[in-house]
């Protein structure tokens, strides 16, 4: 990876971290409602994988922990925050909320709230790509706990049966809501589970963005070459609870301290400093700049944007003026 790209990734990951931390504050301030699932600790997963993808053509789909993936895939952070603030200017016009970030013009195909729901949707997007004989692929990010849903097995089977161009990325943060993986899952190594469907797979350190990028590059080349699906398991950790309503009492503090020493942003920062490509001052300046941008652009935009008109509550239920509802053009 080029030095300039590493520096850019450091900035993007730090931006993602500060964005999510600001969401936490906004939730406490009651500017964000509903459920809020935050990403700090896992930034290298989304950034490493998507750095290796084709930004102009590939499709991305994920679960409800979706803000960072959307921003990395081109969504305007101001519009993502406006969505969390339930504003008409939000990416999903304030109808979706935190769990339903959509930015279809950038091929970010959504955040979905049912654990395991996107597995078949991703396979379907890949099926349509295959019908169009496209070179693009679909990348589906889900957590480890999603692999205990029936849709995991049903989708892996069909993805391999029809050799669909889909990359499944398992962000293994070791907990399904509040239950540790070895207490819910017979086979703890998730990458092994797809061998039952003859899908090639790899397990990688999800805290090291360069390693993630390398593993993803190999996986994406496989999928794009027409050889069918691939599965990557990234070992990672979320610093906060499952959602804001999670007191996070089920984890040992020692475990949390251990993972905080493997922070993906600090690891990349220190490597760049050690190699003489970055100074501590460069980093703190970057951080200050990001915090200013979030406060003065992102939050201001979200705060000042209008809410949806209540008279529009029945829009978007069905297609508007679809001629086939009347049996076509008479």
């Amino acid at each position: 990876m080029k030095l300039a790209d590493k520096k850019r990734l450091l900035r993007e990951m730090l931006f993602a971290r500060r964005f999510e931390e600001r969401c936490y504050e906004a939730y406490v301030e009651r500017n964000i409602g509903g459920f809020l699932h935050l990403y700090p600790g896992e930034e290298a997963c989304a950034h490493g994988v998507l750095e290796a993808a084709d930004f102009d053509n590939d499709y991305v789909i994920t679960s409800y922990r979706d803000h960072v993936h959307a921003i990395k895939w081109g969504a305007d952070p101001r519009k993502v925050m406006a969505e969390l603030y339930a504003k008409e200017t939000g990416v999903s016009k304030g109808r979706g909320g935190s769990m339903h970030i959509f930015d279809v013009k950038n091929r970010f195909m959504g955040g979905y709230a049912l654990v395991g729901g996107p597995f078949p949707l991703a396979a379907g997007i890949a099926k349509a790509i295959q019908m169009k004989q496209g070179k693009e692929i679909c990348i589906c990010f889900l957590g480890d706990a999603a692999n205990n849903q029936g849709t995991f097995h049903e989708s892996m089977n069909m993805a391999k049966l029809w050799n669909l161009p889909v990359l499944y990325v398992c962000e293994n943060n070791l907990y399904g809501i509040g239950t540790r993986i070895d207490r819910s899952t017979a086979v703890v190594d998730q990458y092994k589970r797809v061998s039952a469907y003859n899908i090639p797979s790899a397990q990688e350190d999800g805290q090291d963005v360069e390693k993630v990028y390398k593993a993803a590059t190999k996986a994406i080349n496989h999928v794009r070459s027409g050889k069918g699906p691939y599965f990557i398991e990234l070992m990672t950790y979320r610093y906060r609870g499952h959602s804001m309503s999670d007191s996070n009492a089920y984890r040992a503090r020692a475990e949390e301290r251990m993972w905080s020493k493997r922070d993906p942003i600090i690891m990349l920062r220190d490597r760049l400093i050690e190699d003489g490509h970055l100074t501590k001052k460069d980093y703190t300046d970057m951080d200050t700049e990001i915090l200013d941008e979030i406060e003065n652009e992102v939050i201001v935009f979200a705060s000042e944007s209008p809410e949806p008109h209540v008279s529009d509550v029945e829009r978007y239920v069905l297609a508007e003026n679809d001629p086939w509802v009347r049996g076509g053009v008479q």
């Binding site: 379907g124 997007i125 069909m158």
Partner: peptide, 25 residues
């Protein structure tokens, strides 16, 4: 490829069809 015998996986193949419909199928 267009008249597809699916496995007996109703939620899976229905979801697959829905996903395909997102981008033009």
């Amino acid at each position: 490829d267009r008249v597809i015998d699916t496995p007996i996986s109703e939620n899976g193949f229905t979801g697959l069809g829905i996903g395909a419909s997102f981008i033009g199928a």
